[in-house]
Design a protein around this nucleic acid. Structure first.
Lengths: 225, 225
DNA sequence: CTGACTTTGTGCATCGGTTCACAAAGGGAT
DNA sequence: ATCCCTTTGTGAACCGATGCACAAAGTCAG
């Protein structure tokens, strides 16, 4: 338990970052089941990746394993959490309280670790004032004020496509630099602002592509011309 | 307009497939605005990628552009749609009609092109029998029957994490090979089955990672202890 | 018909990520 | 203390994706 060589490369590959939450989830499950120690092989299986990749990923954070034994679950949970910035509390605002926004507000996974839905905002006077998931829905005119007042640093866009770019610009103007976008548009943002996009219909289209291939099969007798 | 050399490589890179829906969306927008022809430069800008990448992507489908001119919008829409398998109609079943399932059922983007929500299934007797987005919610006991009867080939899992694996196995058993999973678990499936995963909390965690970095900045004075 | 101009399609260098395979490191038994 | 066994951490080969830069191919004006 001595201080393990300062390893933080300050440069963790993007692909690795994207997998850390996966490992974290698997580790949480193990911690709950009382597992104290886990090998790269087992953890990799639980996370659905291969063990070499997992080891290389973890090696980017430092040498937190013990050769011949594996990784201490609790310790690794802490290290990954810290690396991902989950040891602090992130205030999230959800803009757009339609079906999707509502689902997100109620989604347990958000609140669980590190994130807190701090504000709900919508333009429709019909829903402004309603209470959803214990929160009062505020009017879009209050957007900037709410973000500042609640210390929101991550904004989730669940608005109609047409509204997304404008909302995006407004929140950036008051200092937000992390946006999770569910609206089916390409947002244009200045450098330094991070946008991640979740697009349900794109995922379906990718599935359809593969499904079509399978249906045709290797000896596809379709309209090959 | 002569038949353009049989190009279908039968091997389109995965990264390209993932971007085709993006191009398709941009093209639809252009078609609606009456644009007849578009250059790789303009289309790339609309889709948020660089133009060399776009040209290379499209070249995998065939030579559908005209040098000195660009791409004919309508024609390209058709070619990409066909490649993605959107010229046929895909019946989709949504399992789990909680907040998220409801949002998905009502999500216009699904229905719009090529996809049709053909069934809603849930285990909760409270919601079975309800009508959501014009569809009757059926009981999970009917799962296999419904899938066969409606010709469902793509299943969307919006169940609680604990139920996902079981539902997954049941739909695979009746021949489904394409699954879009919103439950926060790693599904284990046999070869030949495609699973795509959308995980809201993972996206947030990735954002938090980058936000933390920005907050600290190059000369981070944090607990480097 | 010719020549200037535009834009595609692609060869090539590069880069980031994955996988293999093994030396190094630790634990535990004798 | 020594040896054997397990498992990590990583060097190196490999693979797919990206981006540059340009020749090839077309349009259009005169």
């Amino acid at each position: 338990m001595k201080s393990p060589s300062q390893p933080r490369d300050r440069g963790i590959p993007e692909a690795t970052v994207a997998r850390l939450p996966l490992y974290l989830r698997a580790l949480h499950g193990m911690a709950e089941r009382g597992v104290a120690t886990v090998s790269s092989e087992d953890l990799a299986a639980a996370a659905g990746v291969n063990s070499a990749k997992l080891r290389k990923d973890l090696s980017h954070l430092g040498s937190y394993g013990t050769r011949g034994v594996g990784y201490e679950v609790e310790y690794l949970v802490y290290q990954i959490s810290r690396e991902l910035g989950l040891t602090q509390d992130w205030a999230v605002a959800i803009v757009g309280v339609g079906n999707l926004g509502r689902a997100l507000a109620n989604y347990g996974g958000f609140v669980s670790r590190g994130f807190r839905v701090a504000a709900l905002v919508d333009a429709d006077p019909e829903v402004v004032g309603d209470t959803i998931a214990g929160l009062n829905v505020e009017h879009i005119d209050e957007l900037e004020a709410v973000i500042k007042r609640r210390g929101v640093s991550i904004v989730v866009l669940a608005t109609p496509a047409a509204a997304a770019q404008e909302v995006c610009e407004r929140v950036i103007a008051v200092g937000v630099t992390s946006i999770l976008n569910f609206a089916p548009v390409v947002l244009s943002v200045p450098d330094g602002v991070d946008v991640r996009k979740v697009d349900l219909s794109i995922e379906l289209q990718i599935l359809a592509f593969h499904e079509q291939r399978k249906a045709g099969g290797p000896l596809m007798a379709v309209d090959s011309q």
